[in-house]
């Protein structure tokens, strides 16, 4: 197991290097630069443009820019934001916890809702309850998060004449305000995550319920609750865990839009800003951090298989 972990960790290095290079090149292939982004619809004279580009260090050859940036990244320094004129690391320190908190709440809600609905749907197979759960699941898969988000926003306004807070406060500064702020977007993301989990839990559980050992468990006189929760669900969860890992990555994509709708200054809104503002150092840092989170989650999911199913061995 430890050999496998070391091997996977070593594989991180070429992946991370590849990401660094691809990100650096790709963001510069996009037309437009930070001076154009700063100007918006106002125009800037060519002379002023050149001066501003020189001040920002954008007039240097691309190779020089890459070498300097790469050297700094290896030392944990993502450089200075062109737009905000402050270290990108400071921006990451502010934004990452906000997005991770949102993702954690969303994943928790998604897994709890998804498994609960999946189990209910499976044990009430072909009843009205099952059909309702399946319709909800299909809606969760079909509706993009930004549609669900705006609908929820409108619903809150219409029913309660209320909209979510617009001033973000950290959980340490004001836990109540923070949770109120995070709850709606987490529900939106959680809903999107719960839908596939519910469907997979249902089908997986239905498959397991038909196994011989389930009949044996029932024949032993165990209650239906114990049969389902202790014997069936444990075996049915393996594909659900695989799916949940992938969903975390999906949620990281979802936060990009949902954070904007619910005014959460996390990595998602930071990424949008960095793209529109052509803030190359910030954009590179956000993509790298998100990629590393994705790689880490995948590794953890792989490792969790062995804990859930002891039959699985790592080569």
């Amino acid at each position: 197991m430890s050999k496998y972990i070391i091997k996977r960790l070593l594989l991180f290095i070429p992946s991370a290097l590849g990401i660094l290079l691809v990100v650096f090149v790709l963001v510069r292939l996009v037309p437009g630069d930070v001076v154009a982004a700063m100007a918006g619809d106002a125009s800037v004279s060519e002379a002023d443009r050149q001066i501003i580009q020189r001040q920002l260090g954008l007039d240097r050859p691309l190779v020089v820019q890459f070498v300097v940036w790469f050297g700094n990244v290896l030392q944990g320094d993502f450089g200075q934001s062109i737009w905000e004129k402050r270290p990108v690391v400071d921006m990451l320190k502010e934004r990452i916890p906000r997005s991770l908190e949102l993702t954690a709440i969303a994943v928790t809600l998604g897994v709890v809702w998804g498994i609960t609905l999946g189990v209910i749907s499976a044990i009430r197979r072909r009843t009205l309850v099952d059909y309702v759960v399946r319709v909800i699941s299909i809606a969760g898969i079909s509706l993009p998060s930004f549609v669900t988000g705006i609908l929820l926003l409108y619903l809150m306004l219409k029913l309660f004449h209320w909209s979510p807070p617009v001033f973000y406060e950290t959980i340490w500064a004001n836990p109540g305000s923070n949770l109120v702020h995070q709850m709606l977007p987490a529900m939106v993301l959680g809903f999107a995550a719960a839908a596939p989990i519910a469907r997979l839990t249902r089908s997986s559980l239905l498959e397991v319920i038909g196994e011989d050992y389930m009949r044996t468990a029932r024949a032993k006189g165990l209650s239906e609750r114990v049969v389902i929760m202790r014997h069936a669900l444990k075996n049915a969860l393996l594909p659900v865990i695989t799916l949940s890992g992938g969903l975390v990555a999906g949620l990281l994509g979802g936060v990009v839009i949902v954070e904007a709708i619910f005014v959460i200054p996390g990595m998602g809104t930071g990424l949008i800003d960095a793209v529109t503002q052509r803030d190359y150092p910030a954009l590179q840092a956000y993509v790298i951090v998100m990629s590393l989170i994705y790689l880490t989650v995948n590794l953890l999911v792989d490792l969790s298989y062995g804990l859930i199913d002891p039959r699985i061995r790592y080569g």
Binding site: L157, H161, P165, V166, A260, I261, F262
Partner: peptide, 19 residues
Amino acid sequence: KFAVIRDESAAQAALASGT
């Protein structure tokens, strides 16, 4: 006080609710 609100829908909801 100013709040940084990028999204138009969020800003309009905040306006209509009185925030």
